[in-house]
């Protein structure tokens, strides 16, 4: 394991250092005193690399990432996992807006809350299925334009589970929410259902991992029932044109 002290370091230099270490075959890199440096892990496709970050990384953490595991001991800012292809990002704190924007594969686990437009335009493709598990709450426009994959919102620490306009323009994938259907305005394109046995089977492995990462009780998570938000159609805008 190699350590880097990112204190006061310009993002470009920090990212160069991390990339050089990864290219030299390093399997685990720990970066301390991270403070706002952007684009950490941008486009990384080092499949068995793990990066441990201590502090608060800047925007676009793990943008275009394709492999690699990033663990953040702190909060993250906006655009975490932007257009991510595969890999895993685990955040022991809160995340900002557009977390998982256009994510196509891989996993994001957030211990705390997330901001607006989380999981916007998430999509799935062949065997790639992006998954995001949020321990806390999510802001407005959750899963906007969502076209695939799944988002699980646990709301373990109270507060308003999700904001208004969740699932606006949604045409694929599933959002699982723990607890009663919140009293918010939903997108026009969705319906809400109780979970069936097979749904619980689908989310179980991710909940187990969440409980492992953040050392919380799986029983407590299951104490409250889940509901799921799914799109009414895969063709929300099929009938607006005249040919």
């Amino acid at each position: 394991m190699v350590e880097i002290d990112a204190g006061g370091m310009y993002y470009r230099l920090l990212n160069e250092k991390i990339k050089a270490l990864a290219r030299s075959g390093c399997k685990e890199i720990t970066v301390r005193n991270v403070c706002g440096q952007r684009y950490i892990g941008a486009g990384f496709d080092f499949k068995d690399l793990r990066i441990n970050l201590y502090g608060t990384p800047g925007n676009d953490l793990g943008v275009f990432i394709n492999g690699t595991e990033i663990l953040v001991n702190g909060n993250v800012q906006d655009g975490t996992g932007n257009t991510m292809n595969s890999g895993r990002i685990v955040v022991y704190g809160d995340a900002g807006d557009i977390t998982g924007h256009s994510m196509r594969g891989g996993e994001i686990f957030i211990k705390g809350n997330v901001g607006y437009r989380t999981g916007i335009h998430m999509k799935e493709y062949k065997d790639m299925r992006p998954v995001m598990v949020i321990g806390g709450t999510a802001g407005e426009f959750l899963g906007e334009y969502m076209a695939g994959g799944m988002i699980i919102i646990l709301g373990l620490n109270g507060g308003n589970l999700i904001g208004n306009y969740a699932g606006t323009g949604m045409h694929g994938g599933t959002i699982y929410i723990r607890g009663k259907t919140p009293d918010v305005i939903f997108g026009k394109e969705i319906k809400i259902f109780d979970l069936e046995e097979k749904d619980y089977k689908t989310i179980m492995p991710y909940l187990e991992r969440f409980a492992n990462y953040f050392d919380c009780s799986l029983e407590k998570i299951y104490e409250t029932k889940f509901r799921k938000i799914v799109p009414v159609t895969h063709r929300p805008y099929g009938k607006i044109y005249s040919y």
Partner: peptide, 17 residues
């Protein structure tokens, strides 16, 4: 395009980032 067959491919008006 890396999207499922037969599903609408929606390009939002702005980039949301």
């Amino acid at each position: 395009r890396m999207i499922p067959q037969g599903s609408d491919a929606i390009s939002p008006a702005p980039h949301h980032d």
